[in-house]
Design a protein around this nucleic acid. Structure first.
Lengths: 342, 342
DNA sequence: GCGGGCGATTGAAAGGTTTCACTCACAGCA
DNA sequence: TGCTGTGAGTGAAACCTTTCAATCGCCCGC
């Protein structure tokens, strides 16, 4: 692919020539305007617009050694949860005078790695990532090669990274306690793949609450999906419907709202009444949960706050020589709505 | 803000020294591995991992003069419509061996300009943008200064840009024809601000269809909102509810699904039955429209296709000296669901 | 044994910016 | 008059990579 060969854009040198000043002065206009007299400044600025000068960020960064951007590699841009987190990050970045750029890994490890690599090569000030696998060695590789990196919405078992997450075990517990309170004694847990930390921990919390309620293990039925999107929820619905009535759960706790919405759709499509025949609890409390066919009970995570906190940690890691890693864990909250009203 | 001063990351020079080869050879390993003998290549690669070498993209780009990324400035990252478009762009970018980075303007013109500027300074191969205002001179300024730019989901009145959009006049017409078919004779149009091209054209289409059905102008009631998010929809709902019953529309056509979902929520909250007392048509057919409290009738736009086509035009503009600007216009389609079932 | 050819490697230049020590001119002051 | 201080502007070096012409060995064929 050849770039259409315009008259290669103007450089500071051209501007300097056109304004009749030295190259250093042009740079001063750009970076320390107070150092240069009003008259010359005006002349230089004039020359810049005349020539259509665009500062070459590569050269700037190469010489100055510092970039003005943060990058966030999202796990799934289609899930509003992550865009809300990004929103929070952006607020903090903007306050610090930095730009935020986004990339989507779409749950694919190799794309995540490629994006991280590219950003590292671009020498961004810092990286935020909601990783496909928080234990992956690529993360430490990136950080060891010199770019501050904060894990968002996940935690690493060893505490070698700053991370910001929500207590998923507690979240799972809240969901199940709520369902148990409502009298359910056979409940499905919908989520997967089971390797996902999120899923594992939410299930773990669910199991504990279940056991503490004195209910038999076998009656908390795991429905393992390949992913956590709407489609996965629909499939789970089909599987639930396929169960003999005697063994069919009366409620489902879904590992996130996308899945819960899929399950809800499939239930409605099959004529199953929600919540009477099937109660549903989701997770994340995305904006669309409240607007769902049956408004969804969900475990709310402080999304924007998650992003802000993550950005805060990242800025500290990037700027503070005495930085020490922290794992911030927020507390989730159950929002009860129609989908579990009995 | 000072960067924590690690041992400034290794450069090709360090790698060369460590591997006992010249600097040019290291570069060859990086860029034309076939030129260098297996033995040296291995030695160099070894040195790279030992030293934790990370190629400096700024320097690369400065010298090579070419970047490997495309950028998309989204209008509203919280609206799934745009993330779906981004998805489509990414597919095309990936196929061309380019990375896509995203930014969110959040409907703020100055942030849009700032992002465009930054990307232009970074010398991205090309820019895609869903602008706050497609007529804004900043867009032509950016392009005139040398970066290919394609407008997504909007069109410019003069045909000076490549753009990809959907026929909004037709979309508005489809929505209204559908409602008229269902017997509605007083309909609200919810959307705003009225300056938005989208809004204006959808309303225009609506008006034409309305007139052609022989219905009086005054009975197509515009409810102007400040934005197109869920909150705006809720407010519109309150305003509708405040109307005297005799003048209250029996249906609403919303300029997008976010607004429609807000309106739906507010209607349900107020005990208004949908569709019996208020039918609703949305626009975009985002994934959540089908899963809404009352599944939403909506005008579907080919989102991913929009993105793919935009990326295609951009790549042509960037790579083809004989490029000529094109305005691609896709055709929308009405998806009927419960919210207008009578 | 020698010239030619070939693959592998080298060295220096170039790319656009920032930085910093330096010069210049001039005003103020003794 | 001579000196100092100051504000404005200068020029060259440095940042790290890629590129390309040039060099170096070495083998082949005669």
């Amino acid at each position: 692919m050849t770039m259409v060969s315009g008259p290669r854009s103007a450089s500071v040198k051209d501007v300097a020539a056109s304004a009749g000043v030295s190259l250093g002065t042009v740079s001063n206009v750009l970076n320390r305007p107070e150092r240069v007299s009003a008259a010359t400044r005006a002349r230089v600025e004039r020359a810049m617009t005349d020539l259509g000068f665009v500062r070459n960020e590569s050269a700037r960064q190469l010489r100055a050694g510092t970039s003005r951007t943060l990058a966030y590699v999202m796990l799934d841009a289609g899930n509003p949860f992550f865009t809300d987190v990004a929103q929070g990050i952006e607020v903090a970045a903007e306050a610090a005078g930095l730009s935020l750029v986004l990339c989507n890994s779409g749950q694919r490890g190799n794309r995540e790695a490629a994006h991280l690599d590219l950003f590292q090569q671009q020498r961004v000030q810092g990286l935020l990532v909601t990783p496909v696998d928080p234990e992956s060695p690529t993360l430490s590789a990136v950080r060891d090669r010199g770019t501050p990196l904060v894990i968002v919405d996940r935690t690493r078992d060893d505490a070698t990274f700053c991370s910001v997450a929500v207590d998923d075990v507690l979240g799972g517990r809240l969901a199940i306690e709520h369902l148990v309170d409502r009298g359910h004694t056979r409940v499905a847990f919908v989520g997967g793949p089971s390797g996902l930390g999120q899923v594992r921990e939410r299930l773990e919390g669910a199991r504990r609450a279940w056991a503490e309620a004195g209910l038999p293990d076998a009656d908390l039925v795991p429905i393992v999906t390949d992913s956590l999107d709407v489609e996965a929820g629909r499939e789970a619905g089909a599987r639930l419907a396929g169960l003999p009535a005697s063994r069919r759960p009366t409620a489902a706790f879904c590992a996130n709202d996308m899945t819960a919405l899929g399950l809800l759709q499939s239930a409605i499509g099959a004529g199953t009444r929600v919540p009477e025949q099937l109660a549903i609890v989701g997770y994340d409390d995305i904006q669309f949960a409240a607007a769902a066919a049956v408004p969804l009970t969900s475990v709310r995570q402080p999304r924007a706050e998650l992003g802000r906190a993550a950005a805060g940690l990242l800025l500290d890691e990037a700027g503070n020589p005495e930085h020490i890693h922290q794992q911030i864990v927020f507390t989730p909250e159950l929002i009860a709505r129609e989908s579990t009203r009995t």
